[in-house]
């Protein structure tokens, strides 16, 4: 298992879930794979199907309409799967914390979460740092 954990750290396929965000974290996530930051260096890749994913990046306050879908997505993913909440919205709701349509603030109310990266939006460097720190906890 230790050996497997060592490998999984080097090959992270990421699926991006946007759950009622303001879009900003989402474009910053996309920014990660472009020449400016190029996370393919670390073996991190964005995939289109949740079946292939190792990490779910969730952004935004989870609205009541999206919440069941997020739960479904989490169940559809092949385990082991990690969940990272990107942005202050997932952790504390940020400016939307008094919204009438928020179901998942914090995100743990909907699905189990492994890590949060806060910021509005977090800088791309902070996101890479968050993912790598989460992987650092794997033994």
């Amino acid at each position: 298992m230790a050996f497997y954990n060592k490998i999984i750290k080097k090959s992270i396929w990421v699926f991006h879930v946007s759950a009622s965000p303001c879009n900003n974290c989402d474009i910053e996530i996309l920014d990660l794979i472009t020449p400016g930051y190029d996370i393919e260096r670390f073996g991190i890749k964005l995939v289109g199907s949740v079946r292939h994913a190792d990490v779910l990046l969730v952004t935004g306050i989870v609205s009541y309409k999206v919440a069941p879908r997020i739960k479904q997505l989490y169940e559809q993913a092949a385990k082991p799967i990690f969940v990272i909440g990107i942005g202050t919205c997932t952790a504390g709701g940020a400016t939307f914390k008094t919204s009438y349509n928020k179901a998942g603030v914090p995100l743990e109310k909907v699905i189990p979460v492994n890590a949060y990266v806060t910021g509005c939006p977090p800088k791309p460097e902070a996101m890479i740092d968050g993912v790598l720190k989460l992987l650092g906890t794997l033994k």
């Binding site: 609205s63 009541y64 309409k65 069941p68 009438y100 349509n101 179901a103």
Partner: peptide, 14 residues
Amino acid sequence: LTINNPHFSEDDHP
């Protein structure tokens, strides 16, 4: 906007 939203009933106008 609140169509098919389990939290809002048909005559709930937020």
